[in-house]
C-alpha cells in the first residue's frame, strides 16, 4: 500500500467525520434564523444569525485592536502557565520527597475557583497586565502540571527495567524514557489549558481593563447591543479554535510514532 493512497483514505474519513457535525450546525442556525423571524424576537434580546454576520463584517475593522490585546494576553499567559506547569511537574517528579508533599495539595488546589480570585488579584496587583496574566497562568498551570506528572509517572515498566539493568542513571531514564513518553499526556493537558486560556483572558478583562474583547463585551452590554455581544462571542470561539488547532498540529508532529489509532 502506498503512502499517498493511505493519506487519501485518511483525508476521506476525516472529511466524512467533519461533514455530519457541520450539517447539524447549519440546521441549528437555520432553526434559529427562522424562529427569530417567525416569532418576531426583538433584536436587543436575540438577534438572527444573519444580523450577527452582517454586524461582524461591519465591526471587523474596529475589533482589530481588541483582538490583538486579548490575543497577546492569551498567548503570553498560556505560554507562561504551560511552561511553569511542565517545569514544576519535572522538578516534583525528579525530587520524590517534594512530590509526596506537594502533589496532593496540587490536586486539591484544582478545586479553588481561580476566576473567583480575580477581584483579589486586582487588589494586589492593580489594573495593569499583571493580575490578568496571573489569572491565565493559574488557569493553564494546573491541567498541564497534573497531566505532565501523570505522563512522567506512567512510563513503561519493562523499558525502565531494561534501562536500569543496562546501568542507566535516574537522569538518563528521565531523558531517554520518561520525557518522550510523557508527551501524549502533556499534550492532553495543553489542549485543556488552551481552551481555558482564551476564556480566562476575556473574564480577566471584565474584572479590569480598558481594551480587549472582554472590555468590548462589557461596553456592548451596557449599550444593549446583543448583536455585537454575539460578534464578540464568535470572535472568541474562533480564537479558541485557532489556539486549539495549533496545539493539535504540534501534537501530530511530535507524536507521529503513536500511529493514528492511539491518538
Amino acid at each position: 500500500m502506498s503512502v499517498s493512497s493511505s493519506r487519501v483514505r485518511a483525508a476521506r474519513t476525516a472529511g466524512r467525520r467533519t461533514l455530519a457535525p457541520v450539517l447539524v450546525a447549519i440546521a441549528l442556525l437555520a432553526v434559529w434564523e427562522a424562529a427569530v423571524r417567525i416569532f418576531d424576537v426583538p433584536a436587543w434580546m436575540l438577534p438572527a444569525p444573519s444580523a450577527i454576520a452582517t454586524e461582524l463584517v461591519q465591526q471587523a475593522p474596529r475589533l482589530g485592536e481588541d483582538v490583538a490585546a486579548t490575543g497577546q494576553l492569551t498567548l503570553v499567559g498560556f505560554a507562561l502557565g504551560s511552561a511553569t506547569g511542565v517545569l514544576v511537574a519535572a522538578v516534583l517528579h525528579l525530587v520524590r520527597p517534594l512530590k509526596d508533599a506537594v502533589y496532593p495539595l496540587l490536586i486539591l488546589s484544582q478545586n479553588v475557583p481561580t476566576i473567583a480570585l480575580a477581584p483579589l488579584l486586582v487588589v494586589w496587583f492593580g489594573f495593569g497586565m499583571t493580575p490578568k496574566l496571573v489569572i491565565i497562568v493559574l488557569m493553564c498551570f494546573f491541567p498541564v502540571a497534573v497531566a505532565a506528572m501523570d505522563g512522567l509517572r506512567g512510563a513503561d515498566r519493562a523499558i525502565a527495567d531494561y534501562l536500569r539493568m543496562s546501568g542507566s542513571s535516574h537522569w538518563t531514564i528521565f531523558r531517554v524514557l520518561e520525557v518522550p513518553g510523557s508527551l501524549p499526556s502533556v499534550f492532553s493537558g495543553l489542549k485543556i489549558a488552551a481552551t481555558y486560556a482564551v476564556m480566562s483572558a476575556v473574564i480577566a478583562e471584565w474584572v479590569g481593563s480598558d481594551k480587549g474583547l472582554g472590555h468590548y463585551l462589557l461596553l456592548q452590554k451596557s449599550a444593549f447591543r446583543a448583536d455585537r455581544m454575539f460578534v464578540a462571542i464568535v470572535v472568541i470561539v474562533i480564537a479558541s479554535l485557532l489556539l486549539f488547532g495549533l496545539i493539535v498540529s504540534a501534537e501530530r508532529r511530535l507524536t507521529r510514532w503513536r500511529g493514528p489509532r492511539e491518538r
Partner: peptide
C-alpha cells in the same frame, strides 16, 4: 551485563 528482556521493551518513538 548485556540484556534482552522477555518483552522487547523498545522505545516506541
Amino acid at each position: 551485563i548485556s540484556y534482552m528482556p522477555q518483552q522487547p521493551a523498545l522505545l516506541p518513538w
